[in-house]
Each structure stands twice: as C-alpha cells, then as structure tokens.
Amino acid sequence: MRIFKSILRKLKLGGVFYWLFGTLITLIFAFPMIFMMVSSLKPDQQIFVDLKSFQAFIPAGDVSIQNYENVFKQVPVFTFLLNSAVTSAIVVALGLVVNSLAGFALSRVSWKGQGIVLGLLIAMLMVPFETIAIPMVYLVSKLPWVGLESGSLIFKEGMMNSFEVQILPFVASAFSIFLFVQYFKSIPKELDEAALIDGASWFTIYRRVIMPLAGPAFATCAILNFLPIWNAYLWPIMVIQEENLRPVQVGLQYFFQMNVQWGEIMAYTTIITLPVLVLFVAFQRAFVASIASSGVKG
C-alpha cells in the first residue's frame, strides 16, 4: 500500500503538477523567442497583421528565409559576432579572476580598510552608466596607453577605436565582486583555518579550497557578466568608429533607418540571441556539477 501510494504521489499527482506548472512557465516565458523566430520568416507587413492574433506565433503564410539573406547582405554579421564573442570572452575570463580575487579579499581575509572598499564598490552600482558616459569617453581618450605601431610597442594617448576600450572598463564589476563576497561568506571559515594550519598560503586557499566550492558563483558571474557586454550599445557607439571593431548590438541599429525593417530585425536578433542561449545551457551545468563535487546528494 505504502509503495503504491508513494508511486502514485511521485508519478501521478506530483508529476502532473510539475509538468503542468512547467508548461505554464514555458508558455509565459518562451513566447517572445517564438515570436521573434517566427517573425524572422515573414515579410514586414505580415508581421504586423499577424500581431493582432495568435497568428504572431505560428509560422504560416508567406514564409521564407528572405530576411536572413538580406541580413547577411546588409551587415557583416560574422565580424560583429566575432567581435562580441572576443570582447565578452575576455571580459568574462579576466573578470572571473579579478572579481573573485577581490571578493575573496573582501570576505575571507581581514585587513584594514576593507569595509570602505566594499562600500565604495556597492556605491558604484548606483551610478547610472548613461550619466557618466561622456566623462568616460573623455577619460579613455586621455589615458596613457600602449599601442603597436610599425611592429613596435609605443606609448600613446587614449584607447579609442580598439578592443581594449570595450574590454578594460568592464573587467572589474562591482556586481560580481559583491556576489562573490556574499557567496564566499556562506562557506565555513573553518576550512581556511584548517588549511592555514597545514601551512597553505592564502593564494592556495583561494585556489584549492574556495574556488572548487564556488562553482555556482563562478557560473552565475560568467553568465550575468556576459550579458552587459553582449548587449553593449551606447558605449561602442561613442568610442568605436571603425566598423570592423563593432559589436552585435550596434549592428542591430543598421536596420533602423527611416523605414524600419522589422523582418530583418527579427532575423538579426534571432542570430545574435541563439549563441547566448547555447552558452547559458552550457554554463548552467555548473549548478549540477558543483553539487556532485561537494558530495551533496539532492
């Protein structure tokens, strides 16, 4: 009887609610993506006519890949994708190191002035980027920087029109550091003390004790820091003047001349959104992996 009951509960009732709720969630959250992909196959006028009904989510009518052909004709899609991929990969990679070290320093090591630094970092989250953009442009155009000219390294003024101007300002992220701080705080302090007694250096503790336990925090920061770089728009508009250095979101604006090309916009946004979702699927495995590694059963 008990076994039967539990099977019923597990398979039927619980299962039914689980899948029911899951289906509901899918309906609520997936529809913009479906709309985007479906519309990317339709001509502009049909997109708007269909938007008045559920037709908007059904690939029917005058369906073709014409929009995609136009997108590739009109915009150097691969260049933009590659630029965004390079920029965001470097920002995420450097950012994970720099920010996790900072988070470690602010949560598990004690030193004078760390409270002030943490306060300063959180305060920086409160500055809307739009309001400091112009002073930032002025600053990066004045900063001494190194560059290559005729094959040799030279010092120059400013870093406009480069990959580094799209990377360096965004490597250190107050948001990430704060997330690492809060996450590291949840890991028992005793682990550090034990390692110290064993003669480990602080770097070893960071590298061998804390990092392996913080997989979900690293995965979260990787995903969440990737987004603003992939979505960067105002900044590259201001500091990038060469087309071959531009990221994907600037490319989107190519379709907003006087007559907005909605079909192409849907096709282009489909092209630039899919890689992000694939990346998300890849990274979120870390949530599962870390549980296994710390020996905890679900």
Partner: peptide, 29 residues
C-alpha cells in the same frame, strides 16, 4: 600581516580598474 598583505594584493587589480574606469568618471560627472 601576511593575511593583510594578501588581502591588499588580491583587491588591487579590481580596485585599480574600478578607480580608473568608474570612480574617476563618476567624480568628473
């Protein structure tokens, strides 16, 4: 002292970047 030393060293890269690219333009603005 070693602990404090490591702490300051570990925060340094992030702190420099934040001071240059965020705090300075914010103060300017």
């Amino acid at each position: 002292r070693a602990e404090a030393h490591f702490g300051r060293l570990a925060i340094l890269p992030a702190l420099i970047l934040i001071l240059v690219f965020l705090v300075t333009p914010t103060l300017l603005a």
